[in-house]
Design a protein around this nucleic acid. Structure first.
Lengths: 128, 128
DNA sequence: TGTCCGTATTATAAGTAATAATACAGTTGA
DNA sequence: TCAACTGTATTATTACTTATAATACGGACA
């Protein structure tokens, strides 16, 4: 499914969260699709189950997955997410990054075409 | 100069780094301008000098400031910065954020006009 | 020469991250 | 029915990070 970087300074559970988010956002994992169980993923990545549990719990709090007792964890459909606050958060982050990029003389056109490319790719995978 | 949020989970030295970066990026602090000394800022913010020192040291490593023994810390001119790797880093972050925003159905036009606004504001303060 | 600067070191306390070992309860299929 | 799988919870331990504290050294400069 993905690999972790043990040399990375970022906590393992954060890395797991990130990778899982990427798979959900990029629609590799579809809504209501089952993701690996806590124990299963722990074994695959050869890390402790509690670390997976922590990552999954936070992903659930953030609305990316939901868990069903004795069945597993599943990708949350978009409607279930608390979209508003997360979007506000992301906009702020975006503004910071763009401010720094402009400070570093990154051309404005470059950023715009990056955005257009990402949105265009999205067009190809409309299943949500 | 700025204030810290002690309730915030983010480490104090990270908060200091962020705020200082913002001031540099927004050109409130100009190249070669002196910033508060380690002890002075520590007193202002009523935190430990070592915490400021850590923040300043990292800012120096990232090329935002330079320090001169017995004189103080100063805003680094852009030329001194290792621009390339930092820009690559920022582009990657930007892509992640835009991907998530598009997943959350943020309109593409919204993002583009945000970028345009930031670059336009930059035009007003051309002193670098 | 006293005062302010950056820098360095060592110690301590509190919080976080990761592992480990268990335990409980619900689901499911053989 | 029950074994095997799920999520969930708890407690303990270790290592690392964060923040504070108390000093100390050496350069700059009025």
């Amino acid at each position: 499914m993905f690999q972790l970087d043990l040399r990375e300074s970022k906590p393992l559970y954060e890395q797991i969260k990130e990778k899982m988010k990427e798979l959900i956002i990029s629609a590799v994992l579809k809504p209501d699709e089952r993701i690996p169980s806590v124990r299963e993923l722990a074994q695959t990545l050869t890390i402790n189950p509690n670390t997976i549990q922590k990552a999954y719990k936070e992903l659930e709090n953030e609305g990316f997955i939901y868990s069903v007792r004795a069945k597993g964890n599943f990708v949350a459909p978009l409607e279930q997410k608390a979209i508003r606050p997360r979007r506000d958060e992301l906009r702020k982050e975006l503004e910071k990054i763009v401010a720094e990029l402009s400070y570093l003389h990154e051309p404005e056109e470059q950023l715009i075409s990056t955005i257009q490319a990402i949105y265009q790719e999205k067009e190809g995978k409309k299943d949500d």
